[in-house]
Design a protein around this nucleic acid. Sequence first.
DNA 1: TTCGTTGCAAATGTTTTGCACCTGA
DNA 2: TCAGGTGCAAAACATTTGCAACGAA
Lengths: 130, 130
Amino acid sequence: MSRTLKFSRQRESIKSFLATRHDHPTADTVYINIKDQFPNISLGTVYRNLALLSEIGEITKITIGDGADRFDGAVHPHNHFICRNCHKVIDLKMDSIDHINEIARKDFSGTIEKHVAYFFGLCEDCTTKP
Amino acid sequence: MSRTLKFSRQRESIKSFLATRHDHPTADTVYINIKDQFPNISLGTVYRNLALLSEIGEITKITIGDGADRFDGAVHPHNHFICRNCHKVIDLKMDSIDHINEIARKDFSGTIEKHVAYFFGLCEDCTTKP
DNA sequence: TTCGTTGCAAATGTTTTGCACCTGA
DNA sequence: TCAGGTGCAAAACATTTGCAACGAA
């Protein structure tokens, strides 16, 4: 059922670029940076590969709602914080909150498979510097 | 600091329309329905009012990431479930999970003010009917 | 009168897609 | 060889915005 993947230099490059970045870049930022290695790569290819990689679970897509989606090369379970002032997206080091799935299941007739949680507020810099 | 609001029939109509719907319509759906009462209303006005109402906390904006944002006339704290099959958005009746803010704060140097959590899986209909 | 609100249309920003060519298996 | 991948450009979408006219206070 799942389609056969073929090796692609571009896709590998996108994947390894994301592995080096921890600031959750947008598709456009990925595009601009990949151009160093592939001057002719197109934005469409970047979008196609980002969609593909997040479908097969090799990267994570972060949809905040303000502007463009962001992408994270880290796939281990973790949550994100978004600063309402500078809009930085930061990985949170926190205990698992997977138990909220149980809480949600308690009075629900369908099947809850997973959740996504985003935290908002002010990052360290924006908290101290007014 | 906060701007002075003036009464607007259109805005009232949008607000009361949302109060009657529990299926989390998109801006376009709101637009189409408000047209019954205001045949000349423009989509821009609908967007402007939805943005305004959600800013002042009279409605809730739901950004899932697939397609258009959705809007909820209910502002009491509650969480949403999105069916991965039929894409329905359902209100969850569940115990508060506000304690996850504490969990997130434990090892974080900024200020965590709030969170948003979405649950995914199959709704009742899509779980039973294959 | 004042200033927020509206309708309309054009513009913006993000993402997707059709198509002919390229490339890995 | 051949199905998947790519580059390019156009299209699709969702949402925002400039502007002149309108309407509530």
